[in-house]
Amino acid sequence: MGDLLGVAVLGAGHMGADHIRRLNSVVGGARVVAVADPDGERARDALAGIDGASVHTDWAAALDAPGVEAVLIASPGPAHEEALLAAFARGLPVLCEKPMSPDSTGALRVVEAEARLGHRLAQVGFMRRYDTEYTRLKSLLDGGSLGRPLMLHCTHRNVSSPGHFTSAMLINSSVSHEIDAARWLLGQELTAVTVLRPTSSSGAPEGLTDPQFALFETERGALVDVEIFVNCGFGYQVRCEAVCEAGSARIGEDGGMLVTGAGRAAHEVPQDYLVRFADAYDREVRSWVDATRAGRVTGPSTWDGYAASAVAEAGVRSLEKGGRVAVELAERPALFAQPGIANT
């Protein structure tokens, strides 16, 4: 590879445009050489001020563009499987945003295709593993000073949901982050899920079940609960409290600017995930670029992406049909036997 890793970015929407900016002006060691988006004008807008990158409306053409050495997939979830398999066929390292695939069958096909290669090429974009607070909590739990983890209490709130958001997407798009974070923090697979439906908020679009409450069971008896509320109206909040045998630890407390005036004080609440997790995204992409330039693949694997899809799929079944739904995972290929849930 040259001095700078040549990256093709698939998708130039909110997430893709932010990654284009990040690759060219934040992380170092990489440059965007091709961008693909069905909306060519949007792709050109995302590249404003960046010279030398080609624009494509066909993602496959972007993979074959001159100078492409790696791929960052930030297109909608249903397009991920085909793009990942095409990248594997070309031997291109990939960072794929979550969900790796919106259904477990497609995700398993990706896992099996990578296993046939005999080596890893893909990292899945569960960026909370790179957030400073989450990594501190992970180290604390792994250190054992608080004893065995018994429960995780999680909160995930958005100001508002996109117009295309469905009730199922609260689980398979939003809560997929908590699913992976729980697996990683606890070092356990999730084995069953129950999704409850409180009365929907008056702020939720018509037909959207929001908020929801998900309860996950783990293979060693811990419980994980998640409040997901994507039209709370006031800000973006992600919190997690680990309750252990000898103590507890909580992350995600509001710690923005404190404004004092008119007889009261108030913290700012982030309005967007790109604000709350800006540093985590930077660390994630920097880690991917550095590892790729060194010929290595680190971070969450396609198995992690598959496991998250399988758990989310069980959650959607519980949402739609009610009751507790067991999570069924395929046999893990030897390629992913280690590190599994660990982030290495």
Rank of each mutant, 00 (worst) to 15 (best):
V71S: 08
A89H: 00
G256M: 10
A334H: 07
G13A: 07
G106L: 06
L95A: 06
V325Q: 12
A265W: 01
V316F: 02
E219K: 01
R109A: 13
A36T: 08
S174K: 00
L186E: 02
V297F: 08
G305E: 12
A310W: 01
L186K: 00
E253T: 03
F234K: 02
A310E: 10
V26Q: 06
E133Q: 13
A83K: 05
Q271D: 03
L47A: 13
L140Y: 02
S301D: 14
P333F: 15
G29R: 01
T155F: 05
R264S: 15
M15P: 00
E112P: 00
S75V: 06
A310H: 02
S200Y: 01
D304P: 00
V285T: 15
A314H: 06
P300G: 12
P99A: 15
R120H: 09
M1R: 15
G252C: 12
A242Y: 02
R22S: 14
V9M: 09
R286K: 15
D64I: 08
V94A: 08
V71I: 06
T132C: 13
Y236W: 04
T344G: 00
R264N: 14
Y134M: 13
P66V: 14
A266M: 11
G28K: 11
S200F: 00
A36D: 08
D37K: 13
S202Q: 11
D210L: 00
F336C: 15
L92T: 01
L170P: 07
A46T: 04
A308E: 12
A314Q: 05
R220M: 11
A17W: 04
L141A: 07
I341N: 10
E82L: 03
L23K: 03
S248I: 07
E217N: 09
V325W: 04
L150I: 07
S160C: 08
R183W: 04
V230F: 07
A242F: 00
M151E: 14
A307C: 14
S145M: 12
E114Y: 03
T166W: 06
D272Q: 09
A242W: 09
S318A: 14
V33Y: 04
G67S: 10
V297W: 05
G221M: 04
L108C: 11
S161V: 04
L92C: 13
E69M: 06
V289Y: 06
A330W: 06
V124T: 03
N158W: 05
E69T: 01
A204H: 02
R116Y: 13
P198T: 14
Q237L: 11
